[in-house]
């Protein structure tokens, strides 16, 4: 078990190194940082001196080493655009994106799993067909259209919910949270639903397919034949077995939700990392883009690691070796 986790940790280190390398190549190959930093009036000699001072003439591998070790020490460099430390900028934006992502995930799980179970247990019911049809429409429409439709209905026509920004936020330590005020929740609701819809549909369909498969398995048929009460049969026997493969996909998707919240954030002007990334692209703010890449990759790796550990926690076959 320990070996399994260690192995994953080592793999994660390599993944992070690869991503760091990609982020670093952005600096090297997307334009010349010196021309980005200096104006037309800087003399060629000054430019050369700057190049030498910044260590840009050093061998590639040495520069990459320096880049990585700076990153590890929390020194992410400065933004070209705002001249602020990138670390600060990202830290400011992370809470918004994380809260949005987590709430979107919760919505998708709290609705998606029960809906999946329901549609699996009553595969021929009218409600099942209706749910399946609706969610199919849900995935077919692009995220931004859903966002705009929600804004139009709940923000403009009904005027119930705000259409942009985070509403009321509370500072807790360095974390700016919108989870503790009603205003904050009101502002969070529409973007979270928009972001969660795709994930919800996926979770539901996955749970449904897996659950139907599990319901056909021998151990469920045997539990039926033993007269195990239906409630236990569905939730204790079937659902637990359903979740083993579903967790992987949910984990991967959560990484995706964090990474691709860009569209939702821009529709709702949500001040998260996605919006920051869009602004950075517009201004070719390479340091921010590079760090964004690394941070997102870090989330992916972290979520995957958690998923692996959940696997071990759920499935005794991974935890306990065969005795005989």
């Amino acid at each position: 078990m320990v070996y399994f986790i260690l192995k994953r940790l080592v793999q994660s280190v390599f993944v992070m190194l690869a991503v760091a390398f990609l982020a670093f190549s952005l600096f090297r190959f997307v334009g010349d940082p010196i021309t980005q930093m200096t104006g037309v009036e800087t003399s060629v000699a000054d430019q050369e001196r700057l190049r030498e001072e910044l260590g840009l003439n050093d061998p590639f591998i040495l520069q990459f080493g320096r880049f990585t070790s700076d990153m590890l020490q929390g020194d992410f460099g400065f933004s070209y655009r705002t001249r602020q430390p990138v670390a600060e900028m990202i830290a400011d934006r992370i809470p918004a994106t994380l809260e949005l992502g987590v709430v979107a995930l919760l919505i998708s799980l709290l609705v998606g799993i029960p809906a999946g179970v329901y549609t699996a247990l009553r595969p021929r019911g009218i409600a099942t067909q209706a749910i399946l049809m609706t969610t199919l429409v849900g995935v077919s429409i692009p995220t931004f259209v859903i966002g705009i439709m929600l804004i139009f209905v709940f923000g403009v026509q009904l005027g119930w919910l705000p259409t942009f920004g985070r509403g009321g936020t509370v500072q807790i330590g360095g974390w700016e949270s919108s989870l503790f005020t009603l205003e904050g929740w009101r502002a969070l609701l529409l973007p979270a639903i928009t972001l969660g819809v795709y994930q919800l549909t996926l979770t539901m369909r996955l749970v449904r397919a897996e659950m139907m498969e599990v319901m056909r398995s021998d151990y469920i048929r045997f539990a039926m034949a033993r007269g195990v009460p239906m409630r236990k049969l569905h939730y204790r026997h079937a659902l637990a077995n359903t979740m083993v493969p579903v967790i992987t996909i949910i984990g991967l998707q959560f990484g995706g939700v964090i990474a691709f919240s860009i569209v939702t954030e821009s529709v709702f002007q949500w001040p998260g990392m996605g919006l920051l990334f869009l602004e950075s692209i517009r201004f070719v703010d390479i340091p921010v883009m590079g760090v964004y890449l690394v941070v997102i990759a870090f989330f992916f790796v972290l979520v995957n690691l958690i998923v692996d550990m959940l696997y071990v926690a759920i499935d005794p076959r991974l935890r306990i070796r065969d005795v005989q």
């Binding site: 151990y219 045997f222 539990a223 034949a225 637990a240 759920i314 499935d315």
Partner: peptide
């Protein structure tokens, strides 16, 4: 009645027990 008065044994013991319990 299932389990109480009539019970069943399946072919493959590898698959007829819930692996997670």
């Amino acid at each position: 009645i299932r389990g109480d008065r009539i019970s069943m044994i399946f072919q493959d013991p590898q698959t007829s027990l819930n692996p997670l319990m």
